[in-house]
Nucleic acid binder design. Structure first.
Lengths: 241, 241
DNA sequence: CAGTGGTCTAGACCACAAT
DNA sequence: TTGTGGTCTAGACCACTGT
């Protein structure tokens, strides 16, 4: 059973996307009237509306009301929202395949030990995969994983979705991640596998991902072809901060 | 007067950063005991803790408790958090200067009209600036602004901080933005002003920024030197979504 | 079972905007 | 003055965890 505020959030989001508030100068009904309609308290309605604010659908002004915000447009590249945690397979609807270039155990050096919360010398999976979208090279992923936390990885899993394996087979929950995004010159591997020239760069995303018990399970570098990937995000200024 | 939940948020954040919960296995006190200590209701405490969750300081598990999350590390590059809205001048403590390369009125084409919510042919500021950090070229910014919304821009403003001018002189409030981040090959201007070779790329951030009345005031492309800028972000999986 | 966090309520008071 | 959203409360019930 979904919480009431999620149901309300979804219904109002649906109304916004259907243009229900276009006639009324993009203004939503007042909170109290929405509370009446959905038979809920104001706190619950506020929670639903807060999610719409945080996703950039509406903005609210004290003393005035709540209004629909125009949506930024997405280009033709593959766009991943900054909040997306679910790996490529779940983020894109195309035909995704993987080619495993390297799959081995290594021993954690200082960096890996720090990022994955291990001791130096502990065994770590090192996975180097090329991921293709509609058979065209898209991203070159170098992933380090803690084999204690994520056991049983094999070629079969790697050819499909690691995230599916973690969530559905191992039944673990992914809770969050830290990411750093940067541009970089392509190196020899990039050029070879992503079919880039020397002049063409990559968009690198460095990531540490955590399970819901706070344990880091993945440290990865994903190097994307510059011409078919971009990140989009929406920020709002939080009120009293 | 700051809301109570902000004060509580700040105090607990301070405690986390000081390592107060290190002894107790990174576990925070229960919500009810924190409510007692801060003399507040549970809803208020939850709001404070929700902000800590959204910023990646803690995670919470039903039936277990709330725990401090290890913090991702930031590298030596200039790192801007994905949520930062405040322009370079307020994001970085170094010695920042600007060189105005071009500053003119143009007429909105279809793209600009759409992004800035104008009619085709309406006048638009076109600002092309090189921004330097500690006298070294850092980012090349091409900005389009609606002169009706942001009037009175001149060379003096451009040599300092546009965001300061908007917030402090014009007394407008910046509410939020949409951003798209991508890597790109450097073009001739990039190479000239950012002092890059043909092989070296840029990190481009395309942005539409909004005031708190929902009006878009800026559409910009910021092309950063690849080797001294990166974006970092933190995502959490929201519960019932 | 007891203890935790998650949701929800009904009502209160405040700050801000428009009239 | 009226109406809006922002904050806050005191208490209720639920779902999940570990004993």
């Amino acid at each position: 059973m979904e919480p009431k505020y999620v149901q309300i959030y979804k219904e109002i989001k649906h109304r916004i996307l259907s243009g229900c508030y276009h006639d009324n100068n993009q203004q939503l009904p007042t909170e109290t009237s929405l509370c009446d309609e959905f038979s809920c308290s104001r706190m619950t309605m506020k929670k639903a509306l807060d999610y719409l604010v945080s996703e950039g659908y509406i903005y609210r002004k004290k003393g005035k009301g709540s209004f629909v915000l125009p949506k930024g447009n997405i280009t033709s590249k593959i766009s991943i929202h900054e909040n997306n945690l679910l790996g490529l397979s779940k983020s894109y609807e195309g035909n995704i395949s993987s080619k495993v270039i390297k799959f081995e155990f290594i021993f954690a050096d200082e960096l890996l030990a720090e990022k994955l919360d291990l001791k130096i010398g502990d065994p770590v999976y090192h996975i180097f995969r090329l991921r293709l979208v509609d058979k065209k090279p898209f991203v070159l992923e170098r992933t380090y994983m803690n084999p204690i936390v994520i056991p049983g990885i094999n070629q079969d899993v790697l050819n499909n979705s690691l995230y599916n394996y973690i969530e559905n087979t191992l039944n673990l929950k992914i809770a969050g991640s830290f990411r750093i995004t940067r541009a970089d010159c392509s190196n020899e591997s990039d050029q070879k596998y992503l079919e880039l020239t020397e002049k063409e760069p990559v968009l690198e995303v460095e990531q540490i991902a955590y399970l819901d018990n706070g344990v880091p399970f993945e440290y990865s570098f994903a190097r994307h072809r510059y011409d078919c990937f971009e990140f989009y995000s929406h920020s709002i200024r939080r009120n009293p901060f």
